[in-house]
Amino acid sequence: MPNPLEAVWHTLKTLVDKDPKAPLHVGEVMGLWTYLTILNEAIQYEKMGLNTTTDEDLKRLLTDAKKLCENQSRKISAFLQKEGIPMPPTTQQKPNSEPNDIPLGVKLTDDEIANGISIKIAAAGTECAMANSQTIRTDVGLMWTEFYAEVITFGATTKALLRKRGWLKVPPYYYPPGMPQ
Rank of each mutant, 00 (worst) to 15 (best):
M1C: 09
P2Q: 02
P2M: 05
N3D: 15
N3P: 03
W9L: 08
K13Q: 09
L15A: 07
D17I: 03
P20T: 08
K21C: 12
P23D: 05
E28Y: 01
V29Y: 02
V29P: 00
M30E: 12
L32N: 04
T37D: 15
E41S: 07
E41A: 05
I43E: 03
Q44I: 02
Y45F: 10
E46L: 00
K47A: 00
T52P: 01
T52A: 09
E56P: 01
E56F: 14
E56N: 04
L58R: 00
R60W: 02
T63A: 06
D64G: 02
D64N: 10
A65D: 03
K66T: 00
L68T: 01
C69E: 12
C69W: 01
S73K: 09
S73T: 14
R74N: 13
R74M: 04
R74I: 05
A78K: 13
A78M: 06
K82Y: 04
G84C: 10
G84E: 12
I85T: 08
T91Y: 05
Q93W: 04
Q93T: 05
P95F: 06
S97L: 13
S97H: 02
E98G: 08
P103V: 04
L104F: 14
L104C: 08
G105P: 15
V106K: 09
L108V: 08
D111A: 13
E112I: 01
E112R: 11
A114E: 10
I117D: 03
S118R: 14
K120R: 15
A123D: 11
C128A: 12
N132I: 06
Q134Y: 11
T135H: 00
T135Q: 02
I136F: 12
T138I: 12
D139W: 02
V140Q: 06
V140I: 15
V140F: 07
G141F: 12
L142Q: 07
M143R: 04
W144I: 10
A149H: 05
E150C: 07
E150R: 09
V151N: 04
T153D: 10
F154D: 00
A156Q: 14
T158L: 11
L162G: 06
K164A: 14
R165Y: 13
R165L: 12
W167N: 05
K169G: 03
V170A: 01
P171C: 10
P172Q: 07
Y173V: 15
P177M: 08
G178E: 10
P180I: 11
